[in-house]
Design a protein around this nucleic acid. Structure first.
Lengths: 138, 138
DNA sequence: ACTAGTGTACTATCTGTACTAGTACACTAG
DNA sequence: CTAGTGTACTAGTACAGATAGTACACTAGT
């Protein structure tokens, strides 16, 4: 029986995001940084609910969404596991996502007094750091 | 009496953002690109409501938020005007906003198969284009 | 003084979403 | 058979968003 991995996520009451989305985003990050490897077993719906002191249905909803995104695999009676990495999105869909994410970022920063170069350098640093964390775990 | 400027925004029913936020973001962009200049008069609450086919209270809420952000000035009995540009946020708050915006962007793109360099170059292009649009109007 | 147009603010109602609580069922390994 | 697992459903509550309606203060023009 695979050992359950601990996942380092928590719910912030001040966070504007709904609880289930904070779980989704937290697990996505743990996988992207390599803290959760393929095949790793996640805490059960009920266990994570207890750990985060929230309702099990909320956890189930988050796990359901991550499964739909292809990041997790669910096995009835066995548990939830990290799926093998596999690009689920077409090239076209990825381009669209990049475009939308860029629009949101531009919208967020358009009134800040930072140069475009400064902001994109800052972002590049974050992106490279994320990539590096993943490589250090593989 | 100042002539009312037309504002090129519309409400997308498929957009996940609430209607009032779409108005806020749309006007912010019009100002940032120079399409709306300081001193320009915006359509009244009732006029924009008719134009967008939404409730006047929804427009008032959007205008209220833009006024709070310092982008618009409201004059009772006269109308709503574009304010003189003025940075309302401290250096610290701006740094925090950049950090949060970056986190959201990273979260949005972490599973796309684009290199960090590619994505930040794409973003830089968008940011420079925005800046250029504003300069062309001044 | 009156009118039309303006912003602001309030109450009430409805809808959709998020979350919780509870329950039940199918699957699995021991 | 049991304990633990995921999945799915109903019901209830709370909140955010939007609408409809109304009222009041301000302003410029006549």
């Amino acid at each position: 029986m695979a050992k359950t991995s601990a996942i380092a996520i928590q719910i912030a009451t001040g966070d504007a995001r709904p609880i289930f989305r904070q779980i989704v985003d937290g697990i996505r990050k743990e996988i992207a940084t390599g803290n959760l490897q393929s095949g790793a077993k996640l805490p059960s719906v009920r266990a994570l609910a207890l750990q985060l002191m929230i309702n099990a249905n909320t956890v189930a909803k988050a796990y359901g969404e991550l499964t739909a995104q292809g990041l997790l695999e669910s096995r009835k009676g066995l548990g939830i596991f990290v799926a093998e990495p596999k690009q689920m999105l077409s090239e076209e869909e990825q381009q669209l996502r990049l475009q939308e994410a860029s629009e949101r970022f531009v919208n967020d920063v358009m009134y800040l007094d930072f140069s475009p170069e400064h902001m994109t350098q800052y972002l590049l640093k974050q992106l490279l750091q994320l990539q590096q964390k993943d490589e250090n775990k593989s």
